[in-house]
Amino acid sequence: MKPAPFDYESPVTLDDALALLDRPGACPLAGGQSLIPNLSMRRTRPDLLVDLRRVPDLRSIETNAGTLRIGPMVTFAEAAASPEVRDACPLVIEAIRHVGSPAIRNRGTLAGNLVWADPASELPLVAVALGAVLTLRRRDGEREVAAADFLLGAFECAIRPGEIVTSIRFPVAGPGARASFAEVSPRRNAPALAAVAAQIEVVDGKVRAARIVVGGVHPVPLRLTAVEVALEDAGPGTDLPDLGASVAKRAVGSLPDAADYASAVVPPLVGRTIASILAAS
């Protein structure tokens, strides 16, 4: 369980880091919670590992003009403890409860988790649900990509060689926003077999800005727009969890290449997340 040979650099400026990452075979190291085990199993064989730990200003969390900005080296534990995140994006907090163990949350980063694009992990669902935008920086410029466009497949994302994520921006949730995250896994904190991320604003008993995204059905997060619309259009007195579950069942059931188990369990999980949000509202 020892990695294949690689070079290692630990730059102290972002420019130096980007210059190093421009080299062929370079790979950035953030929290290392997925990369290091894969190096050890020799599934990943970079020529050069560029450790971002000493690069300044990558750990900030700030809210500005309706946007929450999370730096690329912010760990799950830091995000979970942040009042800014709690106020702006309760769904992020709900999802982090299901991420790994405390040791993993202490080191693993949100950005690293998105780049790894593991179909069983939680943050990609949240990023798609909330319409997060990632800033990708390379040596000679930067670009912005919406989370839904960033995640391309199992362990596949839109990042190109030489690029790193320099920020994840989430729109600040409206007043009355409540979130719920539910998943099924073989064991607590094991990779999810199926998951649902839900955020809803409930104002005067009326649902607004519903966001329902499910995992496990496809290799990338699947947004259930039909459920969102149904919830927002529902008249007073509607059994919203029941409505959500039945619309989700129709939506997932019509997909040709859906994973069998997740398709079966996602609809009731959708119902449960909605029920949990309503109970807290």
Binding site: V184, P186, L193, A245, K249, Y261, A264, V265, P267
Partner: peptide, 19 residues
């Protein structure tokens, strides 16, 4: 008896919601 294994038993008998 993992969740998918038990679900398969339930669905074979028409018990699971996804059946």
């Amino acid at each position: 008896f993992t969740p998918p294994a038990v679900m398969a038993l339930l669905r074979a008998r028409g018990e699971g919601v996804g059946a």
